[in-house]
Design a protein around this nucleic acid. Structure first.
Lengths: 235, 235
DNA sequence: TAGATTGTTAATCGATTAACAATC
DNA sequence: TAGATTGTTAATCGATTAACAATC
């Protein structure tokens, strides 16, 4: 485990390189696809898988898959066996560890509207070791109601609750005009990663990660690709 | 509007270049962000905006913004005025036209479960000229019920219904095991763009566009960035 | 050993950034 | 005219792909 192969000349490098080296975001995104595929293979009792089989199942090229894994070898050790492939169960565990979902990862839901409710019931959360542990809303009409077996709690009590559950991730499913202040409060109470569904540029401290999800964006990219013609479908 | 500045030497180029030239997908994704920003500015009665103001509002660099727009100049004409900037309303309309959402874009919802229901109520759809015009489900318990003022229709009747509404986009919010067959049926009945929420690699004809949305993926990327330490929050 | 498949290196491809002449 | 800001070109950066020596 060499700790200085990326920046040989730099004198005062970070002492603990674990997960500090720059892994491309696209690689991280693909990791979940591999994980999902491995879970499925595991369920089918497949023991070993090769990179080209991964390609068949996921549509991601074998070369890309091997390259993606290689980013983590300096920190997690090498993995595949030449001539053989990868052990399905072990690779699954290996990727889960990288993503910090080898243990339950607690999540706060902020905003218990339609979207929020749907997310709590999203299948696969549990399987991937994500657990929404509390739901908050500032709408008095919602507070106290139950959502999939959870109480909806007044947003003001977020700090109090998170002192107990200690979540570091939050899903932000509130209206655009409430997003920034909700994010501020969440960050203040220990949240370090936010999945933001509001179409707003959140301002957060540098050590907080935000990912934005936008259905409109997805729909727009699709809509773009529809040809101008073809309106009268060629049936 | 020159039609041959990209591939000067190629003899038999496509005759109609409109929107055929390769626009980077990241550019398309950012287009919606610009659009949203312009709508907001329009509401505030701002008349003109410069690329650096766009940067302030969106976090996307001014250079990136200008570059992004430039991909469309060969087909839609140039836009900004040096020394002045961009007319907010006109640029809004210009981008909407590129994305084919200057007129209502009808969409079919396939799968009227929790997620599907939430998507129908998603704010901003109308504002962006997307309209979910029909909801389908194959669960007999759901068929006939109403969803945000729409009837939930038996999935078997998709063809029949789409003959009337003529949608070319669909949102697929069904369980993983139902996704492929649902996609097949949708494509057969005229759908050419699919927003897929199931964690499944859809096989579709080459002229059909698919975009996959995965909450798990988004959560996983966030989770990755949480530092191993810091578990006991530094409060 | 022979066959298969790895991890890694180098080549390619594509997107972002910076800089600036053109122009309102 | 002087100041501002564009559209575009060239330089940089980063990710993907292809190829292959290493190795099970």
């Amino acid at each position: 485990m060499s700790d200085s192969d990326t920046a040989p000349g730099t004198p005062a490098e970070k002492t603990n390189p674990a997960l500090t080296a720059k892994v491309p975001v696209p690689t991280l995104e693909r990791l979940t696809t591999y994980l999902r595929c491995l879970i499925d293979l595991g369920v089918s009792d497949v023991e070993t898988v090769s990179s080209s089989q991964i390609e068949e199942h996921t549509g991601i090229s074998a070369a890309q898959f091997r390259k993606d894994l290689s980013y983590f070898y300096p920190y997690f050790g090498e993995f595949g066996k030449p001539g053989v492939g990868y052990n399905v169960r072990e690779l699954e565990a290996w990727i889960a560890r990288i993503l910090h979902i080898h243990k339950l990862q607690p999540i706060l839901l902020i905003g218990a509207g339609n979207l929020g409710s749907a997310l709590v019931g999203y299948p696969g959360l549990k399987e991937h070791k994500f657990q929404i542990v509390a739901a908050f809303d500032s709408d008095a009409a919602k507070v106290g109601k139950r959502l999939w077996g959870m109480d909806i709690v007044d947003f003001k009590r977020l700090g109090e609750v998170n002192q107990v559950v200690g979540a570091r991730m939050a899903i932000l499913a509130v209206p655009a005009n409430a997003a920034q202040s909700a994010a501020d409060a969440a960050v203040e109470h220990g949240i370090r990663a936010i999945l933001n569904f509001a179409p707003v540029l959140l301002k957060v401290p540098r050590d907080v990660v935000v990912r934005n999800v936008s259905f409109l964006q997805e729909l727009a990219v699709l809509s773009y690709h529809l040809t101008e013609s073809g309106r009268s479908n060629g049936k």
